[in-house]
């Protein structure tokens, strides 16, 4: 029986691991390589690393550092941040990355998705959709680490990304990121109702029950969380955790 994937999503700011709230106030939480080693021991389903320092500064992905992380990652490993060209994607696959996550470039140059999917297969191309609520209560997709409004709706955007050849959608609520409010089940549901490719729900997870809701109510194929796996308690103390396999299996048992 296929297990539902539960994925820690870790943010890189240069070579340090950070955690943000609503994409702001990065708090330093430790060494990424050390975190990967801990997640190895905990046998996590998959790992996502997003470098939040490279897109705005228009820098290349930090290949040497990503390679160091990948060499310790004995689980599927996805990387996003600063990817704008096909040769960078090839380079990432050669150094041990399994999936690439495209965000800003998916908006600016959507043909890259099709090209990358044709060469490497859709299964390795993930499109990240960050969205937030505007003052009228409507949700809109943002790129460039949440700073640039595309004025597009997540559902339409996700559909277009699927048509272009994306293999998975990483759907992230900026409003809920790091806020321990639970997932935005409504939007997750709207997107999973429209597209056929797997959706990874992200933003707001605070409990195992939130994972369950994103899957059973939202229709997500996988769930991602940041703070839930790296911070603990009201003072947001750094503590890397991951539920035991049996616990997850019991919780997420699919019929």
């Amino acid at each position: 029986m296929l297990k539902t994937r539960v994925i820690p999503c870790l943010l890189l700011n240069g070579t340090g691991l950070v955690k943000t709230q609503q994409f702001k106030n990065p708090k330093y939480i430790g060494d990424p390589i050390n975190a990967v080693k801990i997640f190895n021991e905990k046998e996590v389903d998959e790992l996502i690393f997003l470098d939040i320092s490279v897109t705005k500064s228009k820098k290349e992905p930090n290949f040497d550092f990503i390679k160091k992380i990948a060499s310790e990652a004995f689980m599927p490993f996805a990387y996003g941040g600063g990817i704008t060209r096909l040769d960078q994607i090839e380079h990432l696959f050669n150094i041990g990355v399994d999936k690439v996550i495209l965000n800003t470039i998916a908006f600016e140059n959507p043909s890259l998705i099709s090209e990358a999917a044709r060469v490497y297969g859709s299964q390795s191309i993930v499109v990240a959709i960050d969205y937030k609520t505007n003052f009228l209560g409507k949700i809109e997709v943002f790129v460039s680490c949440g700073t640039k409004n595309t004025k597009l709706k997540p559902v339409e955007y996700a559909k277009k990304m699927q048509e272009l050849g994306a293999g998975e959608i990483f759907l992230n609520s900026i409003d809920r990121e790091g806020m321990f409010k639970g997932y935005d089940i409504n939007t997750i549901k709207q997107v999973t109702n429209i597209i056929n490719i797997p959706v990874i729900a992200s933003g707001g997870a605070r409990s195992l029950n939130d994972f369950k809701l994103a899957i059973t109510e939202g229709g997500a194929s996988a769930v991602a969380a940041g703070s839930f796996f790296v911070l603990h308690g009201v003072h947001r103390a750094v503590l890397i955790t991951y539920p035991g396999y049996n616990e997850l299996e019991k919780l997420l048992k699919t019929e």
Binding site: A70, S71, F74, G96, V97, S124
Partner: peptide, 8 residues
């Protein structure tokens, strides 16, 4: 495809 992870 990805040979790096087999080597690792």
């Amino acid at each position: 495809g990805n040979i790096g992870s087999v080597v690792n």
